[in-house]
Simulated assay, not measured.
Amino acid sequence: MQLIQATRDAVLKPLTMVVGIVERRNTLPILANVLMRKDGERMAFVANDLEVQITTHASFGVGTETAATTVGARKLLDILRALPESGDVRLALDDGKLSVQAGRSRFALQTLAATDYPTVALADQWDASFSMPQKTLRHLFNMVHFAMAQQDIRYYLNGLLFVLEPGHVRTVATDGHRLAHSGAQVEGIDARHDVIIPRKTVHEMQRLLSDDDDAMVRIDVAATQIRFSFDDIEVISKLVEGKFPDFTRVIPTGYTRHFSISREALQASLQRAAILTTDKLKGVRLQLSDHLLRISSSNAEQEEAREEIEVDYANEPLDVAFNVGYLLDVLGNVKASAVRWSVQPDVNASVLMTLPDDDEFKYVVMPMRI
């Protein structure tokens, strides 16, 4: 039975959107496959790793029949990428194998039964449903994703806190050493809900969401599940169970010492200073004095780096150290021309970084000893 006839790029587009979550090694071999469902001209591609499931749709099916099968996702992707751009690609199901034909190229791929593919069961009831611009949601993820923990034993930190409030949405991420917060005004939310979205889901959403001003995404939230529906894509993800730290207690208030600094100038200076740090000790020293910021680093070989930047700081001197990676992470993700620092005359106090043109963004970094 012929399933698909379309240009190579037309088939690649929906397949590429789902293959990102397919792991190369799986406890269930079928999870290395992509599920293809045909309902007349309507084709669906599904990938699932038991935590997040992505479904994309396209209209290039051949005939009116219905059919379904699964095939090695990355093999199919690699074959399609290697085929010439010109001419049509034809996919057909024959005797338990998927044939791929383009010009004089022929491939026969082993399949596994679609009935064995473990698709996600949708929640019985959604606690919240609303829509917002894709661009806004992508921005909220982009502004905090870098602060998520990686493989932390505190599993609730290996994700992003998604806070729904009437008229407002917040995103918060922390690894215990730094915290990033962002937010936006959104209509259609009736009550507060706090959920933790897994790290992998956040990264997939960043990849899939559009920056188009008019493109919208519908979000449905249940007790253990979240669903994003946009364009021809549906992303269903499990939520991380656990109690996220109270971020409102972490974000400093009442700081009275502030200064602004060029993001690019600070980023460049920190990148140069980071060259002489070690993998184990990524510390850089920041010394604030009258209208001057000194940045320095050193290593076990007695090598040193020193940088100076003029700043609008006119308070008592401050000498404090930070993990340079935490500072470079935020400077590489925000796009503002300047960042605003708020500090306290205490080497043990966290620094608060904000943006002059974004009242919602807050980044808190704890100091370190070097």
Rank of each mutant, 00 (worst) to 15 (best):
W126H: 03
G61I: 12
M205F: 04
T256L: 05
R199E: 13
L137V: 11
R272M: 11
P14Q: 03
D78M: 06
E41S: 15
N33M: 12
L209H: 07
H193R: 14
E316H: 06
F244N: 10
Q150T: 13
Q125C: 03
T55R: 01
Q110I: 12
L93V: 06
Q5M: 11
A268G: 06
R285P: 00
L352K: 10
L28G: 12
F146V: 11
L76S: 11
V71M: 10
R42V: 11
P317S: 15
A321W: 02
D214V: 11
Q185Y: 01
R192F: 02
P14R: 09
H181V: 13
S131C: 09
V330G: 10
L270C: 07
V311K: 01
D213A: 15
E360V: 01
L12F: 05
G103W: 05
M216A: 15
I233F: 00
D346G: 01
D49N: 15
D359T: 13
I197D: 13
T56S: 00
V217C: 08
T66I: 07
I189K: 04
A321G: 06
A184F: 02
Y117K: 08
S229R: 01
V18P: 00
S298H: 10
F141Y: 12
V217R: 04
R154C: 05
G183H: 03
G183N: 03
V22A: 09
G96P: 04
V172S: 12
N299G: 12
T16D: 11
L137M: 15
